[in-house]
C-alpha cells in the first residue's frame, strides 16, 4: 500500500494554525508569526521531530541562529540565563519543534509515533509533493516550518526512541 503524500493530509493553513498556537502559548501572548516569506540567513539552525506511522517524515523548524537565540530568550522569559549556551538554544528550538510536531501528528492518520527532537542540519525534503512548508516572519525575521516526507533509507526499519521503546 502506498502511503499518502502529506499534501493529501494537511495544508499550509493547518500548519500555520498549529504554529500560531505554539507561538502564542510558548513564545508569548503577543508574539505572532506573519505568514510571509523571507530569506533565511546563511547561518541557520534546524530542529525537527520524526513522525512514524501511516505517513512517515519529519516536522522541521528552521531559522537563523540569532533568531533561535531570541526564541530561546522569549521561551524562557525570566528564567533565561544571562549567557545562553548552545545547549540552551538547541533545547528550546527542539522543544518548539516537538510541540509543533506533536500537534501535526495529532491531525495525521494514526497511530503514529513521535521521535525525540533533534537539532542540527535538517533532513532533506524528498519531493515537493510530500512537503508542506510554511514560511513566516517572527519579529521581522524569517523562519520555516516544513512537514516533509522521509527519505526512505533515512527511516530505521525498526525504529525506537533509543531507550528500547518501540515507536
Amino acid at each position: 500500500m502506498t502511503s499518502p503524500a502529506i499534501t493529501e493530509l494537511l495544508d499550509e493553513a493547518i500548519v500555520q494554525e498549529i504554529a500560531d498556537q505554539a507561538w502564542t502559548a510558548l513564545v508569548g501572548e503577543d508574539e505572532v508569526l506573519v505568514p510571509l516569506p523571507g530569506e533565511l540567513p546563511a547561518d541557520t539552525l534546524s530542529a525537527w521531530v520524526a513522525v512514524v506511522g501511516p505517513w512517515t517524515g519529519s516536522v522541521v523548524l528552521t531559522c537563523g541562529r540569532e533568531t533561535a537565540e531570541q526564541l530561546t530568550r522569549a521561551l524562557l522569559r525570566e528564567h533565561a540565563p544571562a549567557v545562553l549556551d548552545d545547549e540552551d538554544v538547541a533545547d528550546a528550538l527542539g522543544e518548539l519543534a516537538n510541540v509543533v510536531g506533536g500537534n501535526v501528528k495529532a491531525v495525521l492518520p494514526g497511530p503514529s509515533a513521535l521521535g525525540l527532537p533533534e537539532v542540527g542540519v535538517a533532513p532533506r525534503a524528498v519531493a515537493s509533493a510530500d512537503t508542506c512548508r510554511v514560511d513566516a516572519l517572527w519579529r521581522g525575521q524569517p523562519l520555516t516550518i516544513s512537514v516533509q516526507g522521509a527519505v526512505l533509507d533515512a527511516v530505521n526499519a525498526d525504529p525506537s526512541y533509543g531507550n528500547g521503546v518501540p515507536l
Binding site: T72, H79, D91, A92, G94, P117
Partner: peptide, 12 residues
C-alpha cells in the same frame, strides 16, 4: 521533561 526549557517553564 527532557527539555530544560520546558522544565523551567512548568516549574516557574
Amino acid at each position: 521533561d527532557d527539555s530544560r526549557a520546558m522544565r523551567r517553564i512548568v516549574s516557574g
